Every structure is written in C-alpha cells, then in structure tokens.
Simulated scan of single mutants.
Amino acid sequence: MSVRQTRKYTHKFHAPTTLKTDSIFYRIFQSLPSTFFELINQPASLAQAYQFSSVEVKQLAFRIDGVFLPNTSELPIYFAEVQFQPDKKFYSRLFAEIFNYLDKTELINNWGGVVIFPNRSVDTGATERYTELLNSPRVTRIYLDELTAIAASSIGIEAVKLIIEPESTATTKAIEIVNSARQQIIDAAQQREIIQLIETILIYKLPRLSREEMGKMFGLNELKQTRFYQEVFAEGKLEGKLEGKEEGKLETIPQLLALGLSIQQIAQALGLDEQVVRQAAQPKL
C-alpha cells in the first residue's frame, strides 16, 4: 500500500539498481491474487471473493495502492503494505492511512493489515503506541527470508521468494519458476504475464544480465514477450524475416544465436534443417 499525499514514498531494495518492490508485489497480487492469501495462511481459493485494486480518498487527496476489497460484507478488507527500507515513522503512517480510509468509506467490513518486509532487520518502525494492534490477529507481519517454512510453494510464492534470492542462484530459480508456469498455467496470457514478471525481477536484481543469458532462460515464443526482445527488434524486422523466404530466415540466425537460443531451438522455430542452421551460423571468412 503506497499512499501519495503531496509527496511520493519510494521503497528501495538493496540491489545493483533500485527495485520498486511495491509495484513488483502489486503485479504478483494482480496476476496471482491467491499468493496474498497463501502468505497470510488463508485458503488460496479465498482470492475468488476479492478484487485487488487501489482506493482513493478524495477528501484527503491520497490513494492507497494495495487493497483487497471483498465482494461481501462478511469478509474483511485487507491493506497490503510493502516496506523494504527502515523507517521509524512507518507504523504511525500506516495506521493513519488505514483509519483515515475506514473513516471516509461507506463500507462496513472489518479489516486486516499485512506488512511485507525482506527481513526483521528492516522492521524498525516505532511500535510503542501500536503494541496492542501489532500483537493482535488484525495485523500480520511477513518476513520474506523466513518463507522457507512454506513447504509446498506455489508459483506466486516462488516469485515472491525470487525477490530476495541471492544473485548467485537467482537465474537458476527463475528458470525453475518459468518452467513451472509453462507446466501449470494453461491460459497463455497469464503465462506470458508471469514470464514478464520474472524477467522484471531479474532485470532489477541482475542489471548486467545479457541478452544471451536471457535467451537461455526462455524459449523463442516466451522470449518474444520479454523487454529484451522488444527493445532489440522493436522495428519488427525479425518478425518479417521469420515469416518470409529462406534467405530472410538465414539472416536471422546470428541474431537468434546472440540471444542465446540453441541450434535445435532455431531450427525448430524457423522450420529449417539443423545442418542448414549450423552452416549459416559459421563465421564468414
């Protein structure tokens, strides 16, 4: 839940570049809303009764970005906040925002607050005034480095874990998540969204990741959905060649090799014999 009121709060993740963790989490919650309920030990099926969105309090000119609104008055409203940097005034701001919203809305639902930290060391907000709330079931604090306790992890939970995965194993973990998405998710649009999400996390975690390395992680169809592919071939030249004559297809082979695809993958994608692809891949003397 990011609230903007004359100033903008930015959450930072300590990586080579700034990772906008709140927007990453909100994308996860939009694509796989069941992930949120898994994080708070609720049935994943409960997501069907909620809509994840932002809410605006016009009287006070602020917006709360991470809110799960139920479709029935019997279920609580959940406010989701992502906090990746220490902030002494975090809890005072958090509860002020929640209670301001509850005061202005006509909804009669109960409520719950969920705060996501990378680890306990970031949880440095002053708590003296809010001890009763924080010690009650009404507020749930989640520390990502402790999620290993979840034995059977879903794709959503694994995507969340990837955010704090060590750089040395992040690529391997990302490949596992992408492969799981291909096997478990039937809807093509949702599958592309998950792959784009994993790519976004990796780009922020590993800004020096090359096109070759990205290509090894994704097949040709999935690679077309990534930012790398769209930036390199934004003019659509490659698409036209892939659909054109054999001469045009041969011209694309060095480019596809540079993206990390194998001879076998290229041959399959272009409808060419592997030997033809190998010959075209040989450097010209």
Rank of each mutant, 00 (worst) to 15 (best):
R208T: 10
T140H: 08
K245W: 01
R7N: 13
R27V: 03
I185V: 15
T72D: 13
I24W: 01
L209M: 15
I40V: 15
K224T: 15
E222L: 14
L94W: 08
I203Y: 08
P16N: 12
L242M: 14
T124Y: 00
K216V: 08
G260K: 06
K224E: 13
Q230F: 04
T131K: 12
R227C: 06
G156S: 12
N119R: 03
I177L: 10
N41K: 13
Q59A: 15
E176G: 04
I163T: 08
M214W: 01
Y143N: 04
R138Q: 15
G112K: 03
V82T: 09
K173V: 11
R27T: 06
G156R: 05
Q42S: 12
V122P: 00
A188Q: 12
T172W: 00
A159S: 15
V277M: 12
Q225G: 15
A151C: 03
E176S: 13
L242I: 10
S121P: 00
L75E: 05
L102G: 05
L144F: 07
V55C: 05
Q196T: 02
I263G: 00
Y204G: 07
K237S: 02
I263R: 09
Y26M: 11
I186N: 12
T226N: 12
I77E: 08
S53M: 14
Y101D: 08
T17M: 03
E212N: 07
S121W: 02
I175F: 07
L19I: 12
R129K: 13
L242C: 07
S180Q: 15
V3Q: 07
Y143K: 06
N41A: 11
E97P: 00
F68S: 14
I263P: 00
I263C: 02
N109S: 12
V57Q: 10
Y91P: 04
A151Q: 07
G113I: 12
T140P: 02
Q196Y: 09
G112Q: 04
Q230H: 06
A181V: 13
E193T: 13
E243Q: 09
R27L: 07
E128Y: 05
Q42P: 00
F84T: 14
I40D: 05
P43A: 15
T148I: 14
R278D: 03
V232W: 01
I157L: 14
I155P: 04
I266E: 08
A152W: 06
K20S: 08
P76R: 06
T252D: 01
F79I: 01
P76Y: 04
L19F: 08
I198L: 05
L220D: 09
K20C: 03
K8I: 14
A80R: 00
K12H: 05
K173H: 10
I186F: 10
P207D: 01
Q183P: 02
S34V: 01
G219H: 03
E231S: 10
T17R: 03
K173F: 07
T131L: 15
I155K: 09
S210R: 13
I28C: 09
T124G: 03
D273P: 01
A234E: 12
S136P: 11
K58N: 13
N109I: 10
T171W: 03
I201W: 00
Q225W: 11
I186Q: 11
F90Y: 09
Q184T: 14
R93Y: 04
Q42A: 12
A61H: 09
I194M: 08
Y143Q: 04
G271W: 11
Q191M: 14
